[in-house]
Write a protein that binds this DNA or RNA. Sequence first.
DNA 1: ATACACATTCGAGTGTACTCTAAGGCAATA
DNA 2: TATTGCCTTAGAGTACACTCGAATGTGTAT
Lengths: 124, 124
Amino acid sequence: MDKQFTIQQISKKMGLTVHTLRYYEKIGLLEGISRNEQGYRQYTEADVLWIDFLICLREIEMPINEMKQFSHLRSQGNSTVTERRKLLETHQEKVINHIKDLQENLLKINNKIQHYKMLEGENK
Amino acid sequence: MDKQFTIQQISKKMGLTVHTLRYYEKIGLLEGISRNEQGYRQYTEADVLWIDFLICLREIEMPINEMKQFSHLRSQGNSTVTERRKLLETHQEKVINHIKDLQENLLKINNKIQHYKMLEGENK
DNA sequence: ATACACATTCGAGTGTACTCTAAGGCAATA
DNA sequence: TATTGCCTTAGAGTACACTCGAATGTGTAT
């Protein structure tokens, strides 16, 4: 049984607003979402998996343009697997560097916090 | 000898554009930047340190509103040290959680990359 | 004297990623 | 029958953090 979902159900399930779901479709991140007789969107399990992956890309802060590129490659089938892998690897590296920067700056912040604690101790 | 710097020198030194420096001043992140007879900005060593800290806050993605709040507390002197510390600690925690999320999602991405590598292997 | 290179201010414009509004359609309930 | 409540679309509006443009001023170099 191939379950189908309405846009509301997907919205709740995935934590994206219906606006965002329609927006993602409009800009080409979500391709081939089918409609029922009334013209309402019907999402499949496969759509759910894809949306889940899009959310993952978003959480690692991939820009929408890159996500679109990835989405487009995906819709061209298996011949684009290498390109897709490279796209992911390139972004992966960016995120790793970003985390490194965050951690370095967190050290500075922590020094500041320790410094403040010292000042607070003195004023007792 | 209290060194003074022009906006250009600060721009080069700190990696912020002159536009951004004026913008930060306008919105209250940079308070009390002195002027010379011509009305040009003259930045001091203390200003440099403060800008450096602002950049640090920006790199850990503190929103400008929070930076303003911090800046305002700072200008009120030592009585606000505890509040400032708490502000930093609150944001610190957010960043730590953010890093955790990034790392979790990187794992998913890595699985995808491994999966693609497998597919690529099969096609040989 | 006048051009150049810098400075000033105010306010408008940009890019990203949504987020919302308006106008309209269909189906079930009061 | 009419109201409610969902859906559709196109396109306008928002928030954030800059980024730029226009008008104007000042001190040094030719």
